[in-house]
Design a binder for these strands. Structure first.
Lengths: 317, 317
DNA sequence: ATAGGCTATGAAACGCGTTTCACGGCAAGA
DNA sequence: TCTTGCCGTGAAACGCGTTTCATAGCCTAT
């Protein structure tokens, strides 16, 4: 591998001058610039990025900590990050954690070890304080709302209020909800919105997948007291719920109205009533926060959710 | 930032010894090892990975060139890569290219610039030869079949044969196919399988999305001569096709039998007949190839597809 | 005429961990 | 007793680009 010193020798200049040419620094005489360019051409020189990283103390790389790269909404956030990072000539490293704390730790270690300049936490299991203790090593941006933390988030409280309000307008009074991980920030906000307007609670927890949705359907069928509408925390759960009910001969929305969450293509395909979240936008903002000057002020960006009327809600009579 | 020389001074040993402790090299007296450990503790030392990368000439990072991180099957391949890389203590950088050649080039540059040790090409626009000219800088593994190239792939020819055979067994003789990018290796293999058994051709090209599927539906409805069954190249296209037909009052599979491709959750949700591809497995194998000793021999791994019977095919009467 | 300021250029230090090589000591095999 | 060979240790080189600092010529403003 030819390096910058070989170039200097070949072009009869100092390494400083070569470096200046490489970085388009103005203080180089045109003639020398040309000579260096020819040397680069002749020797087939290619810059070693690792050396640049060590020398500058920056990797121009951000890390992304997320549970699953192939879950639609995580992938959509990743897509937004990818786009914004690309636009800023940054790269990104992904840690797929499966919500395993030791795996999440590896992403934090990478920040401390200067493998990445900043970290985007899409979702996490580790206690917030454990993560924040790594802020000394570089910017950390969250895709969930937390107090006093740089974050881009959607207001799940308001989003759920929207869904609940729609169901109540349609005459539903007996409403159930499906939540994901019961103690997550998002679930707590959702539950809060729910408990403010509902008397008799029907809460189905730990629902994340299509299969979990089917399980909810089976539980619902066995209940003597049943809600007439269910607001879910993901289109996947809603899809599993809807399809299992239909398979068992029930009508959706005839027997049960269902609202999804995410605005995924699953919802599109099932013509589902849902609450759409602009996940790619979240990712883009998250990346942009990592490179913001005023990150120490821990800015917060809220992105709006959108209610999408589909065909899985009927008025309750 | 405290470095290895600070540690050496603190522990009264040479930097070599510190490095040995850091790397669990055996030739260190227990006593000194202990002293160094205490110095690490005391000074709060954290290894600078960038320096390790420069020094060893390896980044323990592979690059992934893929068009879209949020398309389900690309995301699934990424998932497999993430898993295998994690198991091997590797990291991965992702280049989302949108099939734009200049973007693809950046991933190749990264390989040349030693930012990554190897590159996995999930799908590409650049000519194969352009990509292969970068093999001098490090291993390149493809997720598509090409002659004389390290690759893990599914045999689209055989996969399509499976689907076509099923339709013919069900009595269909007038069969159409949907292809993606018309000149891609995959499309050519599929078309080949198709043209071997079909007289009257119904080929719908450039179909990639749900919306494209709906377009196919509209074209089909307008045709005087119509196929009685369509084999698609993705579940997305099949979903768009099925839903648009049903919306317009046609029966699937009554009026048209449809077979998807991918085995995605979309297919699951629509109880679609499809051909399932183990994308995560492809990703895992692809990663493992990058670290294989005998990669110069350009090994090829074929992974099998699986026919999944659903409810979108009826016998033709 | 002189203090400043800008252009150009290079030597050397810097970022930091790994690895090669040389060397002393000690034990086992010949 | 002498040769091998392994253990333990460190000085110095290495990987390689960036940046600081000093130097020097030349022009402009005072």
């Amino acid at each position: 591998m030819t390096n910058i010193r070989d170039l200097a020798r070949e072009a009869n200049v100092s390494v400083t001058t070569v470096s200046r040419v490489l970085n388009d620094h103005p203080y180089v005489a045109n003639e020398k610039r040309q000579t260096v360019r020819e040397a680069i051409e002749k020797l087939g020189y290619i810059r070693n990025q690792t050396a640049v990283h060590l020398s500058t103390g920056m990797t121009k790389t951000v890390g992304v900590m997320l549970p699953f790269v192939d879950h639609p909404y995580h992938a959509a956030i990743l897509q937004g990050i990818a786009q914004a990072a690309f636009d800023a000539s940054y790269r990104f490293l992904t840690w797929q954690t499966n919500y395993v704390e030791t795996h999440e730790q590896l992403a934090l270690d990478a920040l401390a070890q200067q493998e990445i300049d900043a970290l985007i936490v899409v979702s996490h299991s580790l206690p917030l304080s454990a993560i924040l203790s790594y802020e000394q090593y570089g910017p950390i941006v969250f895709c969930e709302h937390h107090e006093d933390v740089a974050a881009v988030y959607i207001d799940h409280y308001t989003a759920f209020q929207q869904g609940l309000a729609h169901l109540r307008q349609q005459g539903h009074t007996s409403i159930g909800i499906c939540l994901g991980r019961p103690d997550s920030t998002n679930s707590l906000a959702r539950k809060h919105a729910y408990q403010e307007v509902v008397r008799d609670e029907f809460v189905y927890e730990q629902t994340l997948t299509i299969e979990d949705g089917a399980t909810v359907a089976r539980r619902w069928m066995q209940q003597k007291q049943r809600p007439t509408a269910i607001l879910t925390a993901s289109d996947h759960v809603a899809a599993g719920l809807i399809l299992e009910l239909r398979k068992q001969g029930y009508q959706v929305p005839g027997d049960l109205s269902v609202i999804g969450f995410d605005g995924s293509e699953l919802a599109e395909v099932l013509a589902m009533t849902t609450i759409a979240i602009p996940y790619a936008t979240i990712g883009r903002h998250a990346f942009q926060l990592t490179v913001r000057e005023d990150l120490v002020a821990r800015p917060q960006i809220e992105v709006p959710s959108t209610f999408i009327a589909g065909t899985t809600v009927l008025p309750h009579t």
